[in-house]
């Protein structure tokens, strides 16, 4: 049995952060708390994400890494009762500036728990459609829509732009090529996306996500339902994609994080314990908890 006691984090929990230069950040969570109803699951989490890099989030189950990811494009808004308090900054603009979120932030600041300058209310911050156009997401299980491969990729584009048939054809081809799926599906674009294999479906979801040209692509354990070969292919795709996009990936697989990411954040019980360049974090972790986790002593 492991001899590491897993206790609730206290104020004294060691936390280390080696953040990239601020001017290189594209999206950033600052002092973010998250609540499922009354249960708090994130505690003042900071996550700086550098442009055109892959940032990995690791940590034991239930540590809040998926929650953090889902906060970045506010997909949690689907569920009443879930809410975030803090700041999510995309290209310098606050995205948590609808009236309710601001009120919660004000309440928190007035209790003196954390002090942070307050964002200005802005329409941009409460326009979820715009936010999600700029921050795409791929889920754990492949989620192809019940329509043709072509329509799957075109779905998001159609929401924002009216394109001619030839323009749309070009976008679909380009997206599928970038997701390394084109050669496998170019002869059956009108077939249902449900007929593809799991790995192909996941790359279809990636193609669908990048077709709208987001700045950031969030991936929530995208390889956990895939076999090793499909996983390798997906990882290769992600390495290619970081030239054009910024990627944040949640993974249970430490080797995967070490292989593909530039920055890694280790989370534990709702806190960001350590964040820094991947090489440093794996070869020279500073926090005891990180060391225990990456050397396999618990988790």
């Amino acid at each position: 049995m492991n001899d590491v006691s897993i206790a609730a984090p206290t104020q004294a929990e060691e936390q280390y952060m080696v953040a990239p230069a601020r001017e290189n950040l594209v999206i950033e969570a600052r002092k973010l708390d998250f609540f499922y109803g009354k249960n708090q699951s994130l505690y003042g989490v900071d996550l700086p994400v550098e442009r055109n890099k892959i940032t990995a989030l690791i940590g034991p189950s239930g540590c809040g890494k998926s929650t953090l990811l889902r906060a970045l494009n506010r997909i949690y808004d689907l569920y009443p009762g879930q809410h975030a308090v803090g700041r999510i900054v995309l290209d310098g603009n606050d995205m948590l500036t609808d009236r309710k979120s601001l009120q919660r932030l004000r309440d928190r600041n007035s209790t003196g728990a954390t002090v942070d300058e307050e964002p200005q209310a802005s329409r941009a911050g409460s326009d979820l459609t715009q936010l999600r156009a700029r921050v795409g997401m791929v889920f754990q299980k492949p989620t192809p829509f019940p329509m043709s491969i072509y329509d799957n990729v075109a779905f998001g584009v159609k929401l924002y732009h009216r394109k001619s048939k030839s323009e749309m054809d070009a976008i679909v081809e380009r997206s599928l090529r970038r997701a390394a799926l084109w050669d496998e599906v170019k002869d059956k674009l009108n077939k249902s996306g449900l007929g593809l294999s799991g790995g192909q479906q996941q790359r279809l979801c990636v193609a669908r996500g990048i077709a709208v040209e987001p700045e950031v692509l969030l991936l929530d354990e995208p390889a956990s339902a895939l076999d090793p070969i499909s996983t390798a292919k997906l990882e290769e795709t992600l390495m290619e994609l970081k030239r054009d996009f910024t990627i944040v990936i949640v993974t249970h697989n430490l080797q995967q994080a070490a292989r593909i990411s530039d920055y890694t954040g280790f989370m534990f019980l709702g806190k960001m314990i350590e964040f820094g360049p991947t090489e440093d974090l794996f070869s020279n972790p500073r926090a005891q908890r990180t060391r225990d986790y990456v050397t396999g002593r618990f988790g």
């Binding site: 494009n73 997909i75 689907l78 979820l128 459609t129 715009q130 936010l131 999600r132 156009a133 795409g136 997401m137 889920f139 754990q140 299980k141 989620t143 829509f145 019940p146 329509m147 779905f155 998001g156 929401l159 924002y160 979801c205 669908r208 996500g209 709208v212």
Partner: peptide
């Protein structure tokens, strides 16, 4: 997950229901 995937692309809830869930 299907609803979330639709919403994550920026579609409204009503649009997701009509174009994905009903299908």
């Amino acid at each position: 997950a299907l609803r979330e995937a639709g919403m994550a692309l920026g579609a409204s809830r009503a649009f997701v229901i009509r174009s994905i869930i009903w299908k």
